[in-house]
Amino acid sequence: MSDMFVEKFRGLVPLYLQEPWQEADGITVADLDDVFAELKISVPLALREFLHALGNCEEIMEAYYFFWDPEELEVQDGYLLFLEDEDEAYTWGMLADQADVPDPIVWRRNNATGQWINEEGTFSEFVFDMLDWVFTDSE
């Protein structure tokens, strides 16, 4: 893993939770590799590194919306799904055939209609913007 995004994702813990990042906040690369191999899915670098950095940090993984645990990731309608809102009205994903793109564009599905809408930002941009909105809006 190239660690393109890991440090930035780890930096979200002190930024929003006012405590230092700890190894227990993340999931080991080996564990992620095992899960993805068992699921037979390819996961883009940015999502892998997000889970590696923060996959066990409930305060961030469940901040307003719910990021899925690695073993819950799945492909539907050609999208790799990774997030949903608490009412399960919307699900977020990225095109599954773009797993080799380090930081792919995020799409949102309206679960009632099945319609997908481009969020016009990459996974890392989406995560940073969403968490900034969640944590600064609640203050």
Rank of each mutant, 00 (worst) to 15 (best):
Y16P: 11
V134Q: 04
E23T: 15
G55W: 05
E7C: 11
I60E: 04
D87M: 10
F126E: 01
I27L: 14
N111C: 14
W133Y: 14
P102H: 09
G11L: 15
L81D: 02
P102D: 08
W133A: 15
G121H: 05
G93R: 01
E23W: 13
V75Y: 01
L39V: 09
V134N: 09
P102A: 13
E120Q: 08
G114N: 03
E58C: 12
F123I: 03
F67G: 09
L39S: 09
N56M: 06
L12K: 07
V101Q: 12
P44M: 09
F126I: 00
L73F: 13
V35R: 09
R109P: 04
D87L: 14
V127K: 00
L45N: 02
D69W: 14
A89K: 08
E49M: 11
L39M: 01
N56G: 07
D85K: 02
D97F: 12
M94W: 00
A24S: 12
G55I: 09
L15N: 09
G11F: 15
E86Y: 03
L12A: 13
A24V: 15
F67R: 06
Y90P: 01
D85L: 02
F123L: 03
F66E: 07
D137C: 06
V127Q: 01
L51I: 01
A24D: 04
V106H: 00
F82E: 01
D31S: 14
P44N: 06
E86C: 02
P14F: 11
L39D: 04
E119R: 06
V29K: 14
L73H: 06
P14H: 07
A63E: 07
M1N: 02
T136S: 07
F135A: 04
Q115D: 10
L51F: 02
E139F: 12
E23R: 12
R10P: 13
S138P: 09
V134G: 07
M94K: 00
T91D: 08
L17I: 13
S138K: 12
Y65W: 15
Y16C: 12
A99T: 08
F82P: 03
F126Q: 01
I60H: 05
A99G: 11
D33F: 05
E59N: 08
L51K: 06
Q98D: 14
F126P: 00
A99F: 05
G93Y: 07
W107E: 03
F66I: 12
E49W: 10
E59C: 06
S42H: 08
E72H: 08
W92D: 00
A99E: 03
D34Y: 08
L54I: 13
W107A: 05
D3Q: 06
A112R: 13
E71W: 10
K40I: 09
C57P: 04
D25Y: 15
L73C: 04
T113R: 03
E84C: 14
D137H: 08
C57A: 07
V106W: 01
G26D: 10
F67L: 10
D33T: 06
A24K: 10
D87V: 13
M130R: 11
N118D: 07
Y65F: 13
Y79L: 08
A63P: 15
W21N: 02
W92Q: 00
Q76S: 09
E38M: 05
E7A: 15
R10M: 15
